[in-house]
Each structure stands twice: as structure tokens, then as C-alpha cells.
Amino acid sequence: MNIFRLAGDLTHLISILVLLLKIYATKSCSGISLKTQELYALVFLARYLDLFTDFVSVYNTVMKLVFIGSSLAIVWCMRMHRIVKRSYNRELDTFRHYFLVAGSFVLALVVHEKFTLQEIFWAFSIYLEAVAILPQLVLLQRSGNVDNLTGQYVFFLGAYRAFYILNWIYRYFTEQRFGRWISWISGLVQTALYADFFYYYFMSWKNNAKLQLPA
């Protein structure tokens, strides 16, 4: 494991912790897109089917379980928790996320490495993850004001894939392995979707001002 991969995993983990902290401390999920959370839960469930077939390391297994468990817990909170669900911005969170699921699945049926159940679900999870942030970004743009923890959450979630790209570049030179171009392209798309958000995040940080996204 290299430093970029570790940084990627840690920022991913931090993003989840920040989100859990926000929900736990404020008993509110305002500004958080349930659609994005559901997509992430689906991403992890589809990708980590290999929990049952392949063992890589204790680290990987624990992280996979944490990602699946936390994403399901967040979805549960936003749908079922008596207090938390009241603050959900249902009327702003109207992105048609089923189209993203359908589109990613069709793409996975067409573009994959091997025509096996696991490989198709793996490709599906990569494609879906690349676009899973869209409902969240749309929600933030609609609500205009972004509270501090929500801003941090999205920032860390975006930073994670950028670190993974550095990790793939590093591995390309050190291990002579190209990995899979499916993840390279999807990872680039995923990171590019955050470009706009990153810009306003850094501007607000530089100016010491509250993060606001233009409508």
C-alpha cells in the first residue's frame, strides 16, 4: 500500500465520519441527499460481492464492511429515524437517480472485462460511483447555503478519488501494472464532477467566507 492509496482511503473514511458526526450531533440531515446515499449503499453492495469469494487483507475486509455498514446506517437514519428524517430536504432532492442506476447497469453489461456476475457488478459499481455524487451536488446548488460539515463531507468524498488516481499513477510506475482502464476513466470522470465544487470550496476557504454555490 502506498501513501496515495492510504490518503485516499483515509479521506474516504473521514468523509463518512464527518457525515455521521453531522447527523449524530445535529440530529439533522439537512443538505444531505438521500439519493446519493442510496446510490453509495448500492455501489458498495455491488462491488464488495467479493467479500464472499476473495480475501486480500484484514484491512480491506474491515474497510469494506465499514463502507457497507455506514452507508446502510445513513440511509436507515434518513428514512426511518424519527427525528433525523424530519430535516430531510425531500422537495429539493428530486434527482432521478434511477436513471443513473439503469444507465450504469446497461453500460456494465456492454463494457466489462469478463462476462461474469461478479465482473459485471464490479463494473456497474465503478460506473455508478462515478456519478453517485450528482444528486448531492444538485441538492447543494438548489439550497444555496452549505453548512460547514456538509461542505467538508463533500470535499473529503471528492478528494478520495483524486488520491486514488495518484495511487494508480504511482502503481503504474512502480509495479508496471496498468490496473484497469475502466477504473481510470471512471475515476477521472468522478473527480472532474467535483471540479466546480472544489473551486468554490477553496475560494470560501481562502476568503474565510461561508461556502455558497451559485444557483
Binding site: R5, D9, H12, D50, D54, V56, S57, N60, M63, K64, F67, W122, Y164, N167, R171, E175, R177, F178, G179, R180, S183
Partner: peptide, 10 residues
């Protein structure tokens, strides 16, 4: 199976 550099990631 051949080693796959992606499947050992998250």
C-alpha cells in the same frame, strides 16, 4: 487467476 492490481483496492 492472474494478479489484478485493481481488485486489491477498495
Amino acid at each position: 487467476a492472474e494478479p489484478n492490481s485493481v481488485k486489491d483496492e477498495l
